[in-house]
Simulated assay, not measured.
Amino acid sequence: MRKSADLDEFDVAILEILQKDCTVPQRQIGELIHLSAPAVQRRIKRMQENGVIEANIAVIDPTAVALPITIIVEVQIADERYELISAIKRSFLQAPEVQQCYQVTGEADFVLVVVVASMTEYQALSRRLFHDNPNVTKFKSLVAMDRVKVGLSLPLTRD
């Protein structure tokens, strides 16, 4: 985790632009924030090397690619030994249907965001990830009815 103090106002301005559209040319970013294109390029490279910028990706509408069902899954496990937690994390990481995975506090141990084409596909996934895993004691599925807000943009400037 990076300390926000490591980022100056130019870095934050660059990140705000890139979060909205990572295809904006560095020359244009420089014009917007009053830096040269090479200075913008150096800053972006530094933030990539330091792990501040993790990836440059396209955000795809799941319904446009025949993945209309989003399911939030709460997972409880029986044993919290390191090797068992590592194994279940690996199983979640390897499942392309799992879009997000959080290890959490509270009643659930993990919360997953899953996208699938059909409930039949979800049944197969739940069998593979949950029913067949002896360390999973319980899981609860919440089917999303509407995508109200989806995004990965972080609120970098706060009042």
Rank of each mutant, 00 (worst) to 15 (best):
T105F: 15
S118C: 04
I33C: 02
L15H: 08
R128H: 02
L142A: 12
Q94E: 15
V150M: 12
R128D: 00
I29Q: 08
A55M: 05
P38H: 03
E16P: 01
G106Q: 04
Q94S: 13
P38D: 06
P96T: 08
V59L: 12
G151V: 03
E83A: 11
Q48T: 14
L129V: 05
R42K: 14
R128Q: 03
I88D: 00
L142C: 09
S4L: 15
D159S: 09
V150A: 12
I60V: 15
V136M: 12
L15T: 06
N135I: 01
V143H: 06
T70H: 04
L84G: 03
D79T: 09
Q28E: 15
E54N: 10
D109I: 06
C22A: 15
L18E: 02
T63H: 09
I85K: 06
S91A: 15
K3Q: 15
R42C: 11
R46Y: 12
N56Y: 15
D6Q: 11
A5Q: 07
E54Y: 05
F130M: 02
E80L: 10
M119S: 00
P134L: 10
V104F: 08
V73Q: 06
S91K: 11
I71L: 01
P25Y: 04
V52R: 02
A55N: 13
E49P: 10
R46H: 09
I72E: 14
Q103L: 05
T157M: 06
E80D: 10
R90D: 15
E49Q: 15
T137F: 01
E9T: 07
S36F: 07
R127M: 00
L35K: 15
V73F: 06
D61G: 11
D109S: 11
V114Y: 04
N135K: 03
L84D: 04
D8K: 00
A37R: 10
Y122G: 00
A37T: 07
I60P: 02
Q100W: 09
M145Y: 06
I44R: 05
